[in-house]
Amino acid sequence: MFLQIKDLKKSYGTKENKVMVLHGINLEVEKGSICVLLGPSGSGKSTLLNIIGGIDSADSGEISINGSVIQGMNDRELTLYRRDHLGYIFQAYNLIPDLTVKENIEVGAYLSKDPLELDELIDVLGLTEHKDKIPSQLSGGQQQRTAIGRAIIKNPDILLCDEPTGALDYNTSKDILSLIERVNQKYGNTVIMVTHNDAIKNMADRVIKLRDGNIRKDYINENKIKAEDLDW
């Protein structure tokens, strides 16, 4: 299995203020699949994503990606791990304001020895006519496309998406989800997407529902539909 998580536990605070966020999560994800983590606020889905992404640490348990165990890695090793294997997409885009669309995507390309072809990706993202604009000249959807481009250009093994449509309207959200789907199909990256939008589960290969730090449901989506057909 490509991604394996064993008995992952995480808490915040100490002593009487201690709050358990993840209560021993066990999970396996296949390579190239789209996995959606669903759950209400405070369910632990973003924490789980951050631990998979190596930007937060677990109290106990084990995560391995393609055979590499990330527990016990120091800061430098974790950085290299993220550099070599992961792409991140956030709800807030977090683009660099004084770089153009093309340059923002190049920021991701710089991290890879063998990045995807830049102009082709920009074309796939539908940003060709905007490539020389800076983020403040773009709509939210265009900014998120740029963020996806920045994450995907290094062709990461895993694309981690934290509420990628949280700040977008219905149509733009569907555009972005279609783009993620297209990228997944074209480049074969494993996608792990956190959302609280229940409808998005329908485009996933795998659906994991979290509540209060526990997996409440974990199933293969037999009735997967295209992102463009999603409705909510």
């Binding site: 992404g53 430098r76 950085t79 550099r83 992961l86 792409g87 977090n94 683009l95 920021v107 991290l111």
Partner: peptide
């Protein structure tokens, strides 16, 4: 002011 962008870059694999 650029905390989010720095966080994203670090999350992507930019070293300190």
């Amino acid at each position: 002011n650029e905390a989010s962008e720095i966080g994203t870059l670090r999350a992507m694999g930019y070293t300190r």
